[in-house]
Simulated assay, not measured.
Amino acid sequence: MKILLAEDDQRLGKLIVKMLKKEQFTADWVEDGISACDQALTGDYDVIVLDWMLPERDGIQVSRTLRSEGYSGAILMLTARSGLEDRVSGLDAGADDYLAKPFAFEELFARIRSLSRRNFFPIDHDIITSHDLTIDLANHTIIRGSETIILTPREFQLLVYFVKNTGRILSKDQIISRVWEEESEVTYNTMEAFVKLLRKKLGQTKRNSYIKTIRGFGYMWMGDNV
């Protein structure tokens, strides 16, 4: 699981990162709100642990910015403010959960695991479309016209990840981290083989261009108008 920590207290930040890694999480750390926004929108994180009182841009502003930019992952707000109005403000800004300081690390880890198991895409997005494909997220089916395209669970995960990031260049490391998670033995060759198989099953041609190779970096799912 990949975590972004936004915390300006260096002593606490170092300790949280150390404890996250001890729990086998992958953790990146930034110390201000602007960096938090930039990193969150480009780093493909499962959960953002976001301190309220950040320099440059506070946690409320960061959360609102991320949601307005389409970030749909989990946000856990950390703050010394524990009043009801503060809690409501954090959740209204787009946070998914709220943890008051000081906190026990066991509770932090439990909140992170709980958030990571949730589906952060709205219910009305159970069916998504792209190009000539209709993708049923609940039933794991792909329809093109009257044809049903059969994918393995891993191929389906890969397809959904691409489609939900339409027009965004994804590195090979991002794809492996998101689709294969903690299976660290997965190589670029394995991932590339899955992309090749997915293209074949989708019937990708020059006319039906779904996945574009970004030479030396990764791939991009093309928008419908391309």
Rank of each mutant, 00 (worst) to 15 (best):
M1Q: 07
E7P: 02
D8N: 08
L12Q: 15
L12C: 04
L15F: 09
I16L: 13
E23H: 15
Q24C: 14
T26N: 15
A27S: 09
D28G: 04
D38F: 10
A40G: 09
T42N: 07
G43W: 04
V47Y: 00
L50N: 00
L50R: 00
P55E: 00
R57G: 01
I60E: 00
Q61C: 04
L66K: 01
R67H: 04
E69Q: 15
G70Q: 04
A74K: 01
I75F: 03
I75H: 00
L78W: 06
G83T: 14
E85I: 10
R87Y: 06
A93I: 04
A93C: 11
L99F: 15
P102W: 12
F103V: 11
F103P: 07
E106T: 14
F109T: 15
A110F: 08
S114G: 14
L115H: 07
S116N: 12
R118L: 15
F120Y: 15
F121I: 09
P122E: 11
I123C: 09
D124V: 15
D132Y: 12
T134S: 13
T134H: 03
I135E: 02
T141S: 08
I143L: 08
R144M: 10
R144E: 07
G145Q: 04
G145I: 07
I150A: 08
P153C: 03
R154I: 14
Q157S: 06
F162Q: 01
F162S: 01
V163Q: 03
K164V: 02
N165R: 14
T166C: 05
G167H: 04
L170T: 05
K172S: 06
I175Y: 06
V179Q: 02
V179G: 02
S184C: 04
N189I: 12
A193S: 14
A193L: 15
A193T: 13
A193N: 10
F194M: 15
V195C: 06
V195Y: 10
K196Y: 14
L197D: 05
L197W: 10
R199F: 08
K200V: 11
T205I: 13
R207Y: 10
Y210R: 09
K212T: 11
T213C: 09
I214F: 11
I214V: 11
R215E: 08
F217H: 15
F217P: 02
F217S: 12
G223I: 07
D224L: 07
D224I: 13
D224S: 09
D224T: 10
N225D: 11
